[in-house]
Simulated assay, not measured.
Amino acid sequence: MSVLPLVFTSGWASGVNAYAVVLLLGVFGATGVSDDVPQTLQRPEVLAVAAVLFLCEAVADKIPYVDSAWDAAHTVVRPLAGAWVGALLAGQSGSLPDAAAAALGGSTALASHAVKAGTRMAVNTSPEPFSNIVVSLAEDLGVAGIVTFAIFHPVAASFVAGALLLTGLLVLYFLVSRIRRFLRRRAQRREERRLGASPWPPPPG
């Protein structure tokens, strides 16, 4: 069977939480749940690093503004992780060229990362912090559910991932104005901190 659906789904999930994808796939392979998981992902050191980084993301992802800073730092990490996992899955199955799988996984991860980062910017415009926790938990559960589903039903899971990606892009389009307000407010706060740290008062007028 072609590994294409699993590559696409893992790419989407990597754009949301790359460490969870590596950890889940590795655990499924190491425990014998799936024979489609490459040995590289099952290595103890890979699982240990993924687990630690997943815990770090689980905390950072639930704190307003910290989550957006974390997303910015992972703009490169998540697409690279999606490409890496895709290439490994292709190499394991032999049904898809590694380069093509890496391109698919990386581009899908980049798209879903953009949706996540943009949505978080919009969420951070809310004055209360609880929405960050709710959204973060929904993302964590969504990634866990879709990756698990993909192990047993890769084609169906790829359709779900595609629908989620398309929906997220549409929502992001309508949130652009709110994101712009968030960026303006963040720039204003930086300017206020800069002026507050200055030893001289700002000039009048």
Rank of each mutant, 00 (worst) to 15 (best):
L96G: 02
V52W: 06
C56G: 10
G94M: 00
A58N: 03
C56Q: 11
A60N: 07
L169M: 10
V160W: 00
P44G: 07
F149K: 10
L23W: 06
S107W: 06
L165A: 06
D98R: 09
P44I: 05
P127H: 04
W12H: 04
M121S: 08
G162V: 01
S2P: 12
V37Q: 05
F149D: 06
L195N: 02
V135R: 02
V21C: 01
L96V: 07
A101S: 02
A144S: 15
G162M: 03
R78Y: 04
S126Y: 13
A30S: 08
V22C: 01
L170E: 08
E45H: 15
E139H: 08
L166K: 04
V49R: 06
P204G: 15
A60D: 02
L170F: 15
A117Y: 00
A99P: 13
G94K: 04
D67K: 02
D67R: 02
A51V: 07
V66F: 09
V7L: 01
S95H: 05
C56L: 14
A81D: 05
L183G: 12
A102K: 00
E192D: 11
D67P: 13
S93P: 13
S107Q: 04
A100D: 11
S34R: 06
G105P: 11
L166H: 08
A58R: 04
A117I: 05
R180P: 05
H113C: 11
P203K: 06
D61R: 05
D61F: 09
A90V: 07
P201S: 13
I151R: 14
W200Y: 14
E45Y: 14
I179W: 03
V59G: 07
A111M: 00
G29S: 03
D71Q: 05
V66C: 10
L96Q: 04
W84M: 14
V85M: 10
M1V: 09
A144N: 09
I146Y: 02
V21F: 02
G196F: 03
P97A: 05
S2I: 13
V52S: 06
S131Y: 08
A60G: 12
S112A: 06
L80M: 12
P129H: 01
A161V: 13
G145P: 09
A161I: 10
L165P: 03
G118I: 01
G196A: 02
P203T: 09
W12Y: 02
I63Y: 01
A109L: 12
T9D: 02
V33K: 07
L183E: 14
S158I: 09
F149V: 13
S68L: 13
R190A: 10
G91Q: 08
L166T: 10
P5N: 03
T40I: 15
R194N: 09
V123F: 02
R78L: 08
L88I: 05
M121W: 06
P38C: 01
S177R: 14
L25R: 05
S158Q: 07
A114S: 11
L170N: 06
L47R: 02
V27W: 11
R186Y: 11
A48C: 12
G162S: 14
R190W: 10
L164T: 04
A117G: 13
S2K: 11
A18L: 05
M121I: 09
L141W: 08
V33N: 08
D140V: 15
